[in-house]
Design a binder for these strands. Structure first.
Lengths: 110, 110
DNA sequence: TCCTATACCTTGACACTCTAGGTATCACCG
DNA sequence: CGGTGATACCTAGAGTGTCAAGGTATAGGA
């Protein structure tokens, strides 16, 4: 649903996408569906954010793309995590944990 | 310190600033210092983000400014939370809690 | 006198997200 | 057969917020 404020995903999108790929290669559309499903529609990736993010991460060497077939036998571009992507995910996860803890400490009543 | 990645504050800055003001009026510089101190240097507000954020929130009616004196008896612009600012803080805090929970659920090991 | 801390301000670049369009294929249903 | 909705990808442009890097001014201490 994402009746959320625009820009809500800012900063965490890469990590979320990378995380989606740890269990194996996935195509873009599946990444978006999986994330929605996994968070009960709480988090939604707009396609206008998703694809640019994937290209960005491909340029950085965090993921690799290859044309293939989806589960429904349709043309799809499959993204696979690279070793560097794995390292990046670890780093971003750690950063998220510390950042979230700090913000929560300030924002949420003790 | 803020050896953090650029853009880290994205989205949460307003809420953090508003929260800083619940205990009473503060001037910009004090807001930045307080937040650093409260998070053990984990979160830092760059001045180039802080002041624009305050003007933004003033325009939106979340805070009100008034020239006065700092604790050190220096000219300082004191910001005070308005009722609308208080409401905004509640909303943003709730949003943060749900957002952080969703992201953590995906990112952090169960 | 010089330096540091206090306190505020602004410009411009940068990065990311989102809106809002678009293409093509396939399955299903009337 | 035509229409519709889901799948799957793509892109241009706008909007926005954050940041880097400059700047001003004053007060106090060395």
């Amino acid at each position: 649903m994402a009746h959320e404020a625009p820009g809500m995903m800012h900063g965490t999108l890469d990590a979320l996408i990378l995380k989606t790929l740890v269990t194996g290669p996935r195509h873009g559309y599946a990444i978006a569906r999986w994330l929605e499903e996994a968070t009960g529609e709480m988090l939604t990736i707009e396609e206008g954010s998703l694809y640019p993010a994937l290209y960005r991460m491909e340029r950085k060497g965090w993921v690799e793309a290859e044309w293939g077939m989806s589960e429904l036998n349709r043309r799809a571009k499959l993204y696979r995590l690279t070793p560097r992507g794995r390292k990046q995910l670890v780093a971003e996860t750690e950063h998220w944990a510390r950042f979230a803890a700090a913000v929560s400490k300030v924002l949420l009543p003790a």
